[in-house]
């Protein structure tokens, strides 16, 4: 049998196409790399184009915040105004109130909604009957998949003046009806309760995953040492959750300036605007509804930068305490 041996250039060989198999070559120019990756580049092209156009060009659009942008003059023709709009942010009492609302809602969420997920995960973890556990899990995860329109809609149906709750208050308890949806002081508690109802079940998933990774031997050893269930929880279960808690807290801190746009937007009405308006909704009202593009961009940029700084700081802090951090 005659074998036809062809001399092959390493870069043209079928094996060289694989990037996983390094083939040493002195001249590894950009051009040959591009040729080697030509099919991969074709595959990645739509994705990269997407990120460029819809994620990164808008970042350049941030420059609007330093210009007096008007849609009629266009971007290039609009004059530069430096930090004018950033100064306006801090002079405007309304913006200060909006920032304060945003921070309050986020903080209330971190203090109430976040720990509830941990507690719920611990409670679910204590259930021994696996079928019952799975049944409970599928119920508590469900609200996560509902739209905010549906959740706010359910809230409205239950809390409006002729709704179920006020019906019970008036007819059974002989109390006065409570204007839940228009009372500005009730806005934040209701929003937090909605988040707890919708997301705390879903929030258990990562904790339950961490819990299922704990070796049963640890508990067996603890039992032999005479540890009660509570002590087992304190000394074994909670430490096992620590790194998950830290990572999720870092991520949450980075989003301190977002407080759930759709939810708040749907809950707002003229009566609760003062306590309910947050940065995102404010940017929408100012920028899109009143066409005050530059000012709204400045507020949005301010929000984004604070968020970025918070993530970096939280990540450093986590590392200082010996945790892995996010990156």
């Amino acid at each position: 049998m005659k074998l036809k041996v062809k001399k092959i250039d390493p870069l043209d060989s079928p094996l060289a196409v694989s990037n996983n198999i390094p083939i040493k070559r002195k001249k590894n120019s950009l051009k040959s790399k591009l040729w080697r990756d030509r099919y991969l580049l074709l595959l990645i092209f739509p994705g990269v184009l997407y990120f460029l156009i819809y994620r990164y060009i808008p970042m350049a659009g941030i420059l609007l915040a330093f210009k007096d942008y008007s849609p009629f003059r266009g971007f290039a023709e609009s004059p530069w105004v430096g930090l004018k709009y950033f100064k306006l942010i801090f002079e405007d009492a309304e913006v200060i109130q909006v920032i304060w609302n945003t921070l309050q809602i986020s903080m209330l969420q971190i203090f109430f909604a976040f720990p509830i997920s941990i507690v719920l995960a611990l409670m679910l973890n204590e259930i021994r009957n696996q079928v019952y556990k799975r049944f409970l899990q599928s119920i508590v995860y469900l609200p996560h998949f509902l739209s905010w329109v549906v959740v706010v809609g359910i809230t409205v149906i239950f809390l409006r003046s002729e709704g179920l709750i006020n019906g019970v208050l008036v007819n059974f308890l002989d109390l006065n009806p409570i204007p839940f949806l228009t009372d500005p002081t009730l806005f934040k508690p209701i929003v937090i309760l909605q988040v707890i109802w919708k997301e705390s079940g879903w929030g258990t998933i990562l904790f339950l995953a961490a819990l299922s990774g704990i070796s049963p031997h640890l508990y067996e050893a603890a039992v032999i040492d005479g540890a009660s269930r509570l002590r087992q929880m304190w000394h074994i279960t909670l430490p096992a959750l620590k790194s998950t808690i830290v990572i999720l807290l870092i991520l949450r801190l980075g989003n301190v300036m977002d407080s759930g746009f759709e939810q708040i937007f749907l809950m707002l009405n003229p009566f609760n605007m003062e306590t309910g308006n947050v940065l995102d909704t404010y940017v929408y009202f100012k920028g899109i509804q009143q066409a005050n593009f530059s000012f709204a961009t400045a507020v949005g940029l301010f929000k984004g930068i604070i968020g970025l700084i918070l993530v970096v700081l939280a990540n450093r802090l986590a590392k200082k305490f010996g945790e892995d951090g996010l990156y």
């Binding site: 819809y54 808008p58 970042m59 659009g61 995102d280 940017v283 949005g300 984004g304 968020g307 970025l308």
Partner: peptide
């Protein structure tokens, strides 16, 4: 970690 925000988008 960082997005341009609603208006530029």
């Amino acid at each position: 970690l960082f997005s341009a925000g609603m208006i530029p988008t």
